[in-house]
Amino acid sequence: MSILKEVRFLLQKELVLEWRQKYALSGILLYVLSTVYIVYAATQQVQPHIWNALFWIIILFASVNAIAKSFTQDGEKRQLYFYTLVNPMAVIIAKIIYNALLLGLISFLTFAAFSLVAGNPVKIASQFAIALFLGSLGFSIAFTFISSIAAQAKNSSTMMAIMSFPVIIPVLLTLIKLSANSMRIMQDTAIWKDIYTLIAIDGILIAVAIILFPFLWRD
C-alpha cells in the first residue's frame, strides 16, 4: 500500500471515529463557546488589541486541549495493530491533517462566536484568513508531535503544556503580529516576511516530526 493511500485510509478512520463518537468535537466546541462567553463577560468592551490577544489565547488553549488526546485515545492494542499494518509516517501525517482540519474548524467557530459577542475588528479579511490557516497548520504540527511524546510520559497533560507552550511561542508571536496587521492596529509594509517565516517554521517542524515520529512509535 502506498503511503498516500495509507494516509487517506487513516484520515477516513479518524473522521468516521469522530463522527460516530461526536463527544470529542462537541466537547471542544462547547469549551470554546464557554471560554468566549467568560472572556466577553469579563471584558465587555473589547478593544481591538485586547480582542487580538484574547482570541489567540482562546485558540491556543482550545488547540492544546483538542490535540492532547490524539495519541491517548487509541488504546495500546489498537496502536500495536496499526503498527503491524501501516507506515508510521502515514500515521503522523494523517493525524496532522486531521488535527489541522479540526483546528481550522475550531478557530473559525471561535472567530464567529467572538465576533458575535465582542464585535469584529478585522479590516483585511484575506490576511486574517491566512493567519487562521497557517495558525491551524502550525499548531496542528507542533501539538500533534508533542502529544505523541507526552503520551509516553507519566503525567501526560502537564507534559503536554510545558513542552508545547514554549515551542509554539515563535508561531504565536508571528500570528499575533499578522492578525494585528489585518486589524490595522499596526502597519507593517513587509507583512509577507512574516507569512514566509510562518511557512518556514511550519516546514521545519513538519520535517522534524515526520523524521522523528517512527522512533516514538515503536514500543
Binding site: 508531535f145 511524546i149 514554549p166 515551542v167 511561542i169 515563535p170 517565516t197 518556514a200 517554521i201 521545519i204 517542524l205 522534524v208 516530526a209 522523528l212
Partner: peptide, 10 residues
C-alpha cells in the same frame, strides 16, 4: 532533536 529544531526560529 525536536527542541534544537525549535531553537533555530527562536
Amino acid at each position: 532533536i525536536f527542541a534544537f529544531a525549535a531553537l533555530i526560529p527562536l
